[in-house]
Write a protein that binds this DNA or RNA. Structure first.
Lengths: 121, 121
DNA sequence: AAAATAGTTTGACGAACATCGAACCATCGG
DNA sequence: CCGATGGTTCGATGTTCGTCAAACTATTTT
């Protein structure tokens, strides 16, 4: 089972404490994340590209011009939500500035080799 | 570029010559297969399970009772076609008996670690 | 306080897709 | 030659999903 990571849970060590607002945007416990969910999340060209660009684990802004995709910001927002709910990323919210970060360590632990295999070519 | 593997091309070494009819069901050249296509193919529960069960590279019959999925045979047939066209499997046709086989060596070469990462858990 | 900024949410729309049943095709066994 | 068998294809149906525009929320700037 394992609850969602919410306000009461501690942060993973790679979450910058400057980003205080992670709690409002819950992330599924990695133990509950199913492979099929990850695959579904990543089986979209835009989301796959996003994951590849944050594979190093560094936070990246959500801002539209950071990514340069030819979609509206509501669409981009939808993709970020999909990735979070699927367990792939967390949101680092600081005022108006939102960053996303791949849950790299957890993902590598739960699905060894998967993220790496998405980076080829 | 690279044409589809058709009648004029030679067989990969792991194709049993007993299965003579591979040519009628063309497979994309692995160089043309894009990661996103593989991910899309595998982002379905049934197809993921199929791939996992043939991960060892051994041919398996298409027959409905081999797999035990709760879908009609036309649906199963559709999934096999999807997997072939996405570049994941080849069809080994021998009379009425059809087998499928994961293109394991080619896949491992093109997308190192990907298939392995689907096998966890 | 007002306006601008960064992002979310909602509702609608169309395309893609998983599924089924029925018709069809090819092969094997009497 | 005929029926059974193993599988494919076709058309229809319902659902999922990516997308957009518009409305909304929250934060920062002036």
């Amino acid at each position: 089972m394992a609850e969602e990571t919410a306000a009461t849970n501690e942060h993973p060590s790679d979450v910058d404490p400057e980003h205080w607002n992670v709690e409002n945007y819950p992330v599924p416990d990695m133990a509950d994340v199913q492979l099929i969910d990850v695959l579904r999340a990543v089986a979209d060209p835009i989301r796959l590209e996003i994951v590849r660009r944050i594979a190093d684990g560094k936070p990246q802004p959500k801002s539209r011009d950071t990514w340069g995709f030819d979609v509206q910001k509501s669409t981009l927002s939808h993709h970020f939500k999909t990735l979070r709910e699927a367990g792939l990323i967390r949101w680092l919210v600081n005022g108006r500035q939102h960053d996303i970060q791949l849950r790299r360590a957890e993902l590598d632990d739960r699905f060894p080799g998967l993220i790496d295999s998405l980076l080829a070519d």
